[in-house]
Nucleic acid binder design. Structure first.
Lengths: 181, 181
DNA sequence: CAAACCATGTAACCAGTTACATGATTAC
DNA sequence: GTAATCATGTAACTGGTTACATGGTTTG
C-alpha cells in the first residue's frame, strides 16, 4: 500500500535518478507547490519503496557518515506509477485557515480585516506574477508525453488558482469598504 | 496554544451554544467545506478549550451514558477568537493529489487520462451548480457584521474555486484531445 | 581554515483518522 | 419493539513536523 508521498517520490524519480537529498530539494521546488515532505520523511519512505521493490539504489562514495545512495525506478516502480496516475484521487478533507477566518469574520474589526485581505491580496499577486514569468519562459504548452508537459500543466493550475484567489481577495475588500469603517 | 481546530470550534460556538454532537455536524456542513474534524477529535479539543477557560458547558440530562453537555463561549473565548480572526493564517503546505498526478501525467495512457479529467470536470461542475443554487437563495451578500456574511463570503470563495477547477479541467481536456490518440 | 552545502539517518511529538465501546431518546 | 438518531468517550494507528545527531566535500 504505497502512500501518496511514495508516488510523489516515484514521479520525481521517473524523470531521472536522484539521491534522497535531491528528492528533498525537488519536494521544495517544483513539487512543493502541490506536495511537500521533509528529508526525514523521504528517507523513511525510500526504505519502504525499496522493500516493495519499486526503487533501487547504487551506493556511491560521497559526503556524510553513510556515503550517498543514488535511487532509480525499477520496472515495477514505473508500472505502479503509471497505474496510479490515471486512478481517481482519494478525496482529502479541505483545510483552509483563511476561509475559516472568513467564516468568523463578522466578529472582526473592519480595519484589521481589510488589512488581512490586503496582505493576502499582495501575496497572491506576487505569486501570480512569478507564475506568469515562468509561463512566459515556456512559450506555449509542450505536448503531452513530454515530461515538461507535467510541469506546464501544474503551472497552469497554479495560475488559475492564484487568479481565483486574487479575485476573491478583491471582492472581499470591496465588500468591506462599501460597508464603511 | 489553541490549535486551528480549537478556533474552528470557537467560531461555531460564536453563533450559539452547541453540544459536541452538534459541533461534529457543523464540521461536516457547512464548516466542512474548509475545515473538518471527526467527533473524537472534537470531544478531545473541547476538553482542552475548557481547561484553557475558552468554553464552558452546562450538563443536561440526555441520551448516552454520560448525558449531554451544552457548550458555550466564555468572554475569554470570544476575545481569543476575535484576536485570531485578523491574524495572518499560518502557511500550510499544499497537498493536491490531482495536481501531483498531473505532474506525472506525461507517462499516462491518453485515453485513461482524459477519462480522469472528464470525471473530475463532472464533479466540479456538479459542486458549482450546488453552490450557485445556494448563492441564489441568499439574494445578495449580507452586510459584514452579520453572521451570515461569514457564510456568504466562504460560499463566494467556493464558487470561485470550483470555477477555476472547472476551467482547468476543460483546458486539460483540450490539450489532451488536440494531441490525438 | 571556516562556512556553506551535500548527505543520511533516528527519536519525540502532534494532528488527524478509524475502530472500539456504551447507552439513552425518539419516531415509526 | 426495533431502528435511527443523539450523545460521549477511549485506544490504536498513520502521516507529518521538528529536533537531534553525524560527518564528508566544496568554495572562498
Amino acid at each position: 500500500m504505497t502512500s501518496t508521498l511514495g508516488f510523489a517520490i516515484l514521479a520525481v524519480l521517473a524523470r531521472g535518478e536522484r539521491t534522497g537529498y535531491d528528492l528533498a530539494a525537488a519536494m521544495r521546488t517544483p513539487v512543493g507547490y502541490f506536495w511537500t515532505a521533509g528529508h526525514s520523511q523521504i528517507h523513511a519512505e525510500l526504505q519502504k519503496l525499496r522493500a516493495d521493490g519499486l526503487v533501487g539504489f547504487e551506493a556511491e562514495h560521497g559526503p556524510g557518515p553513510q556515503g550517498k545512495k543514488v535511487y532509480h525506478l525499477t520496472a515495477d516502480g514505473l508500472a505502479a506509477l503509471r497505474a496510479w496516475v490515471t486512478e481517481p484521487p482519494r478525496a482529502r478533507p479541505e483545510r483552509d485557515e483563511l476561509v475559516l477566518k472568513t467564516y468568523a469574520s463578522w466578529l472582526a474589526e473592519p480595519g484589521l480585516l481589510r488589512r488581512l485581505f490586503a496582505d493576502q491580496l499582495a501575496m497572491h499577486e506576487e505569486r501570480l506574477a512569478g507564475y506568469e514569468r515562468e509561463e512566459a519562459a515556456f512559450g506555449g504548452p509542450p505536448p503531452p508525453g513530454d515530461p515538461r508537459f507535467g510541469n506546464y500543466a501544474t503551472l497552469w493550475c497554479g495560475l488559475g488558482y492564484e487568479r481565483h484567489r486574487v479575485e476573491w481577495c478583491r471582492w472581499m475588500l470591496e465588500r468591506l469598504s462599501s460597508a464603511g469603517a
